[in-house]
Design a protein around this nucleic acid. Structure first.
Length: 235
DNA sequence: TCATTAAATTGTT
DNA sequence: AACAATTTAATGA
């Protein structure tokens, strides 16, 4: 339950390889890129730690360099509803950063993660100066909208197998998370937290999905063989 | 580089 | 929820 402030204090500049994971840097012009890189900070987040909590003022636009995050919100009953997971290369909070509001959801680290932050002022400067950056953010917002709608459907679905399948498909969404290849490093325990099922039920679902040929289960992760099948639930 | 040990992850009950 | 089996990571010769 560390505060945001302590996160920032542990921050440091990024290494070259860490910069390579940030998708939108590639669409910037040299001078824009220089300014953005100069302002980027990176911090470690321990497993279970909160990156941002609802109600806190926005100071940074966040992106994941390494690890796995979960985006969720607490509804009135105290139940937490998970919208989506965020794999490396994913950036979030642009909606709230745009309006300089407070966060509307929680971002929690599912395992030890490295989180990069860009100050909102620089975020706005990029919006004012870079066409490429605007295009990236717009595409991101549009995709996110679709994800939130899909998340509602997933939560309504009773069949856990389909639920796991859809959640995996969401994690693999290549537009929103371009940094991801075909292998997803996620343990079944982490996936269970993400989907909101028990680990053994997730294990069962994964076995079925593997038998259908949609994925291949590996130690400490899995490989997506048929993304279309995961999305539609038709094999 | 290889062997041994510890830790993490998975598959079952 | 607890167990055993398996895989990876770490350690040291």
């Amino acid at each position: 339950m560390a505060q945001d402030a302590s996160l920032y204090q542990r921050s440091r500049p990024l290494t070259a390889s860490e910069l390579g994971v940030i998708p939108w840097l590639k669409v910037l012009l040299p001078d824009e890129r220089e300014r953005a890189v100069g302002d980027l900070k990176i911090t470690d987040a321990k497993a279970g730690e909160c990156i941002c909590r609802t109600g806190r003022p926005v100071t940074y636009w966040f992106g994941l360099v390494d690890g796995l995050l979960k985006m969720s919100t607490d509804n009135a009953d105290g139940q937490t509803m998970t919208f989506t997971g965020i794999p490396p290369g994913g950036w979030f909070g642009e909606g709230t950063a745009l309006k300089r509001e407070t966060y509307r959801y929680n971002i929690q680290a599912l395992r030890k993660s490295m989180v990069a932050g860009l100050h909102v002022d620089t975020f706005h400067w990029l919006l004012d100066h870079s066409i490429g950056f605007n295009r990236f953010v717009m595409k991101q917002l549009n995709e996110r909208l679709g994800q939130f709608i899909a998340a509602r459907e997933i939560d309504r679905m009773g069949n856990p197998n389909i639920r796991v399948a859809r959640s995996l498909a969401a994690l693999f969404n290549p537009v929103l998370y371009p940094g991801l290849g075909t292998v997803l490093r996620i343990t079944q325990q982490e996936l269970a937290y993400l989907v909101g099922l028990s680990r053994q039920r997730v294990n069962e679902a994964l076995t079925i999905l593997a038998a259908e040929g949609a994925i291949a289960v590996e130690y400490g992760g899995l490989r997506v063989l048929n993304l279309q099948a995961l999305r539609t639930g038709i094999f």
